[in-house]
Computed example of a mutant assay.
Amino acid sequence: MLQTLVHYSLHFIVPGLIARVFFPEYWVKAWLIMIATMLVDLDHLLASPIFDPNRCSINFHPLHSFWAIAGYCILFFIPKFRVIAVGLLFHMLTDFQDCLW
């Protein structure tokens, strides 16, 4: 229960705080973009079972692979895609903390 609470707080609340601090002039838009990056979880539909609480998503699902994460890091250095990259990278960090539980 605590893991689920922490996980979803990190997915929804913390991106809002990040947006407010680092993108103050358009923080609501930045927050919504970061929330939209959760579409990266569509790659979970390729797994069987779709949800396994004991599975580490990092490097298991295609959009959670080290190659994908490297791509998200590259996106960070392109100003037009920075908010998206921050959302994706924070998403990966959130999913990684699940691997540590």
Rank of each mutant, 00 (worst) to 15 (best):
K29S: 11
M38I: 02
A68C: 08
L75P: 05
C56Q: 05
L88N: 02
D41S: 05
C56L: 10
F76M: 08
P49D: 09
L42M: 10
N54A: 14
A68M: 13
A36M: 14
I84G: 02
F81P: 00
A68S: 12
W27Q: 15
A68P: 04
S48W: 14
T37K: 02
Y26Q: 15
P49T: 03
L89R: 02
L45A: 13
F60R: 12
H64Q: 08
M34S: 12
I50M: 14
L46F: 13
W27E: 13
D43L: 12
M34I: 04
I33G: 09
W27Y: 14
L45C: 01
G87V: 02
W67T: 10
Y72R: 12
H44W: 01
V83M: 05
F81S: 08
P49M: 14
G87Y: 07
A70N: 01
G71K: 06
R55F: 08
V83A: 09
L46A: 11
C56T: 13
I84P: 00
H61S: 10
A47R: 07
W31D: 05
A70K: 10
K29A: 14
L45V: 03
I58T: 11
V86Q: 01
T37H: 00
N54L: 14
I78W: 03
A30W: 09
I84L: 11
I35L: 11
I78Q: 03
R55M: 15
G87R: 03
D43R: 07
I35W: 08
R82D: 06
C56E: 08
P79Q: 04
V83I: 12
P79A: 14
A85R: 04
P62D: 10
